[in-house]
Computed example of a mutant assay.
Amino acid sequence: MNSTPVINQVFAGGLSLLKPEGQSTGMFKQRHNGLVRVALNGLVGDQHGDPRVHGGPEKAVHHYAAEHYPRLAEAFPDSAGQLLPGSLGENLSGQGLTELNVHIGDLFRVGTALLQVSQPRSPCWKINHRFEAEHMSMYVAKQRITGWYYRVIHPGIIQAGDHIELLERPNEWVSIDEFWQVQLSHRPVIEELMALAATKGLAEDWQRRLAERAKWLQKRVGEGG
């Protein structure tokens, strides 16, 4: 990276109800202009509607590239007025970091906190309900503009305007975009799945799922399937 990216906005917040069925969601976050404390489970004061699949130490902080919003607005013009930084439920928003140049295992310093990229975000149906756009989550997934999660290596204080400084990159080939290219492939290469499963810093749940898929494919090949 030629220059150090900056966190433009920080978001956290409580729970709201999602139309039309009233499910609980933490997507409607509030912008914070002052200092925000980052603990091992994420930003203090942040909440999640379904803690079974959101939040926790391996999904502590969600980062989304602000430059994707114009692209989303063009693809979903009826929702363009709502597609602003923070509206996809991210905690950190900025420009200069995207799925193309952020890698699994990257270690960043933000303010006084140390954050490590643990996994991509898997977009879900709540995005469709949030924007009343039936296929938005599928578009986000297929375009590989999902954002990513950090685990918190060292708690600290962050605020808008902080630089996000890359300290360590243990995996040169596994960008978030490359992760999705392998994972979403209709006929993935078994060796690539196994290499992905062994990626240093990848969340254990993804390591397990990828390894199980590779073993299933190996069995099928062995059976002549």
Rank of each mutant, 00 (worst) to 15 (best):
N2E: 15
N2T: 14
N2D: 15
S3M: 14
T4M: 14
T4S: 15
P5G: 12
Q9W: 10
Q9D: 14
A12K: 15
G13P: 05
E21M: 03
G22H: 04
Q23F: 01
T25Y: 02
N41I: 00
V44T: 13
P51S: 14
V53F: 11
A60V: 03
H68F: 04
P70A: 11
E74N: 07
D78M: 10
Q82D: 04
Q82A: 05
L83E: 04
L84W: 02
P85F: 03
S87V: 00
S87L: 01
L88Y: 01
E90R: 06
L92S: 04
S93N: 12
G94Q: 09
G96T: 10
G96I: 07
L97N: 10
E99S: 12
E99C: 09
V102P: 09
H103K: 07
I104V: 13
L107G: 09
F108S: 06
F108M: 09
R109Q: 15
V110N: 13
G111A: 13
T112W: 05
A113D: 09
A113K: 06
A113T: 03
L115H: 13
Q116H: 05
V117H: 09
P120G: 11
S122T: 06
W125I: 01
W125E: 08
N128S: 09
N128V: 00
F131W: 04
E132H: 08
A133T: 06
M138I: 06
V140Y: 03
A141F: 03
A141I: 02
Q143V: 00
Q143G: 02
R144Y: 01
R151P: 01
I153D: 11
H154L: 07
H154I: 00
G156R: 07
G161E: 12
E165C: 08
R169C: 02
I176S: 07
E178N: 15
Q181I: 02
S185Y: 02
S185A: 15
H186W: 02
V189T: 08
E191L: 12
E191H: 11
E191R: 14
E192P: 00
L193K: 08
A195F: 03
K200H: 13
A203Q: 08
A203Y: 02
A203K: 02
A203E: 11
E204W: 04
R209T: 06
L210H: 09
A211N: 14
R213Y: 01
K215F: 05
Q218V: 00
Q218Y: 00
R220M: 13
R220I: 00
V221W: 07
V221M: 13
G224N: 10
